[in-house]
């Protein structure tokens, strides 16, 4: 993976306070996205991960602070699978084609549209399920479908909300490789995750938040007992295995309820 954060800044949040109905979720947060970013946002439930992503997207307006985007910046978003209406009547092809909202939007796909969607589905390894209903896919295929939709708009910045939530180990592994490939192709990536060992430890750059930014750096700098205690409010053991930090979930000492 290439170094992160040395390219030009394409999106800046400066001293923003943002939340819902006057209740701030994030206070005085500054976060810069570079053109070669590959960052994981880590934090407990309710810490403001999704709020931060929605602010980056422009879906949430900050109560204070400034958001600055590079002119012509193209962003694409991959939602959490749990938030999707899986009963919605769309096939994989129809879902991916939604992203083509510029220019002609007629119901019938043009030859170029069909070629582009087929190529994108092929690139992501889900060409054979193009005519299936979205509910009939596996978790990994569903995630790939939304990434295909996002990539069809040729984004500079790809934002993913919990991309490995609810998927198995093999799918998570494939997802990491896919995202690394996209990053190599020049797409800036920001994602949220609560999966410290399976996802966060494999990313080149991490930010931990809990209402504010707690730490920012490489996994070795961020995945430490001190930082995790300040982020999650509980002391977590961190070991090193094959040069990577591994967080030990010790439910005898941490977690919402002690297990005897």
């Amino acid at each position: 993976m290439t170094a992160t954060g040395v390219g030009p800044v394409i999106l800046k949040l400066d001293n923003i306070t943002v939340g819902y109905e006057h209740a701030p979720v994030l206070r005085d947060v500054s976060f810069h996205v570079h053109s070669d970013q590959f960052t994981g946002i880590v934090g407990p439930s309710g810490s403001g991960k999704t709020t931060l992503l929605r602010t980056l997207l422009g879906a949430l307006r900050p109560q204070r602070g400034t958001v600055t985007t590079k002119a012509g910046l193209r962003m694409a978003y991959v939602p959490q699978l749990e938030t999707v209406n899986w009963n919605f009547p769309v096939t994989v092809f129809e879902c991916v084609l939604m992203a083509r909202t510029e220019g002609r939007q007629w119901p019938r796909a043009s030859r170029a549209d069909k070629t582009d969607v087929a190529a994108m589905l092929d690139r992501l390894g889900i060409a054979e399920v193009a005519q299936r209903h979205i509910r009939q896919l596996s978790g990994g295929q569903q995630q790939r479908m939304f990434i295909a939709r996002a990539l069809l708009s040729n984004p500079d910045l790809l934002i993913l909300d919990e991309p490995t939530s609810g998927v198995d180990v093999s799918t998570r592994h494939d997802m990491l490789h896919l995202l690394a490939d996209l990053h190599e192709d020049g797409i800036s990536i920001v994602l949220s995750t609560h999966d410290l060992n399976g996802m966060a430890a494999h990313l080149p750059h991490l930010v931990t938040i809990n209402g504010k930014i707690i730490a920012d750096g490489t996994p070795h700098e961020v995945i430490t007992s001190d930082v995790l205690e300040r982020t999650f409010g509980a002391r977590l053991e961190v070991l090193e295995h094959l040069g990577m930090p591994i967080v030990i979930d010790d439910y005898h000492r941490v977690g919402p309820r002690a297990v005897s």
Binding site: G58, P79, V84, F88, A99, T101
Partner: peptide, 20 residues
């Protein structure tokens, strides 16, 4: 003339907004 925008906003308004 607005088929895909309508479909996108019906399926997922937040992602549609993020997509322009």
């Amino acid at each position: 003339f607005r088929y895909r925008s309508l479909l996108f906003t019906t399926f997922d308004p937040e992602v549609a907004a993020a997509s322009g």
